[in-house]
Nucleic acid binder design. Structure first.
Lengths: 237, 237
DNA sequence: ACCTGAACACCGTTCAAGT
DNA sequence: ACCTGAACACCGTTCAAGT
């Protein structure tokens, strides 16, 4: 990539210079392969054996770099979190709301570009470095909104739950294979599926079919975030 | 179970009375077996083959009653939703808030008693009859709160996302085998895991470690629901 | 209609061995 | 240290056959 080969090569030349089989893999290649599989084939395309196959090694070679399938899945989520535009969260204090709104939109967009990864969102704790950094920045924005530290911390989690929960349920209605159908198409399919709602049995739901069809929409996403923010700031002094 | 054998036997005697192998299974037994496996052995205990084994039949016999493993998972969630105390959602209009708060608490409790089922919450659309009925009743409570129909419909989904998202992330931090460790214990484990937060790197997060440890707590759950409700009613006339 | 029997094409993970 | 080779104990699902 660059004239000098970077950290790994530098460290290697200094400490270890044995003939050996000369490593054919590294952690990055394993993760690239895993995300590539999910992005091309959807949720079912991911397996340790498929990752190994894509890298041209035996299945068990993967275990040199990841402890287990579930550890691999956690790192995949972490890597996609790292793609979100964190810089949207920083800015002048009075603009705390637009910072949060634009960042949550950005995070949703990133996840919708990797729908099969989004399907892994709620299956393991989000405790990687990117998740921690996102938390720190959201916390900062809510402090800028005037919330006391403890309320800002609680609000941070409520917002994260709303955002990742929304996206997880949104992709759960798809096959997880990118690119997803356009939003309008997905809403229309939901609208058709809600045709069954009989006003005699579920009057309120039947009367708001069109809104429920849009539960996966960008409008509903933004609206939910805004309402939650309204509730959070209401109790700021 | 009772002197007369119930619906199935009655229907059977009237319409079909052929010798045959006399069915050894039905849909209910399959679902009972599946939930039983999850409740005893956690998420990994569920497989089509294990369900068959528990019922003493061949693996493929299960396919007479469920179309696929993922269809089975959807029905498992539906069945656990049906265990929630829907009657908590009905009552006098002015008590809309306490109806919503007590129902969401009840739903969380039910799900935490079936943690491996809770792990399936975000992997498929919740479109079963119980989910529809829950939606109808939540919608009613939000109408009682004074929200316009469309806002009530949007609010219903925001609330569902918050509740199921919260529980899914909560159980994702456990092994999914019931009974879960007591909440205080799970919070203490989180507190210990957050010890690494260096104030130099993440000052705001480090300062609110104790709150973040309690992100899986009943207090945080209630607080999140209340703040969202605050945001929802703020725009009611 | 509902089950058995047998097979297909996979899994994650572990262990021993090579270099 | 990092890979190969081989195996263990599983999967979901399909098809043909029995009754």
């Amino acid at each position: 990539m660059s004239p000098v080969e970077g950290d790994a090569a530098a460290a290697g030349s200094a400490s270890r210079r044995r003939p050996g089989p000369r490593r054919s893999l590294d952690r990055t290649k394993v993760l690239d392969a895993a995300v590539g599989l999910l992005d091309e084939g959807g949720p079912e395309a991911l397996s340790i054996r498929a990752v190994a196959g894509r890298l041209g090694v035996n299945p068990n070679a993967v275990y040199t770099y990841v402890a287990s399938r579930s550890a691999l899945e956690r790192e995949i989520v972490e890597r996609v979190f790292a793609e979100s535009e964190l810089e949207l969260l920083t800015g002048p204090a009075p603009r705390w709301r637009s910072r949060l709104v634009s960042y949550t939109r950005s995070l949703r967009s990133v996840l919708l570009r990797h729908p099969a990864v989004a399907g892994l969102l709620m299956t393991a704790p989000m405790d990687g470095p990117s998740a921690v950094l996102i938390g720190e920045r959201v916390l900062g924005a809510l402090r800028d909104a005037g919330l006391a530290p403890d309320d800002a911390a609680r609000g941070t989690y409520a917002l994260i739950v709303q955002v990742v929960g929304f996206v997880a349920l949104e992709v759960a209605e798809t096959d997880g294979r990118p690119p997803l159908a356009p939003e309008a198409e997905r809403i229309a399919a939901r609208r058709a599926a809600l045709e069954f709602l009989d006003p005699a049995d579920w009057p309120l739901s039947a009367a708001t079919r069109d809104v429920a069809a849009g539960w996966i929409s960008t409008d509903q996403f933004d609206w939910s975030v805004e309402r939650l923010l309204d509730g959070l700031v209401q109790r700021a002094g």
